[in-house]
């Protein structure tokens, strides 16, 4: 894992300030989307070997949830954005 995460609000900060939650590539389904969609959202994961978008919280900083695109083999961070701007999960 990279030692620094470039928070879009605070600049590069040590990763110890952040908390990881998990896959940011999943979208919360509509309430009536049905069992399969909800099961997939809550339980199934792409778990890629390579680039992976995930939610990190800048817990000891600005307290914004971020979407970090990171490589799960090299741990290189390719992009960081604010989760609210991502829109994909709404």
């Amino acid at each position: 894992m990279a030692s620094l995460i470039a928070c879009p609000h605070c600049g590069p900060r040590p990763k110890e300030e952040f908390t990881v939650r998990g896959d940011a590539g999943i979208t919360r389904p509509a309430p009536d989307a049905g069992e399969d969609a909800w099961h997939a959202y809550v339980y199934l994961r792409d778990n890629p070997r390579g680039r992976h978008k995930e939610h990190w919280h800048h817990t000891s900083g600005c307290r914004r949830w971020l979407v970090v695109e990171r490589d799960t083999m090299t741990h290189t961070i390719h992009a960081v954005s604010d989760a609210s701007a991502e829109g994909a999960t709404a």
Binding site: H55, H57, R63, A83, S84, T89, A90
Partner: peptide, 14 residues
């Protein structure tokens, strides 16, 4: 607190 922030920022930013 983290959960509320997640819901507000990532799920329902509107």
């Amino acid at each position: 607190m983290n959960h509320l922030e997640f819901c507000a920022q990532a799920l329902w930013p509107d």
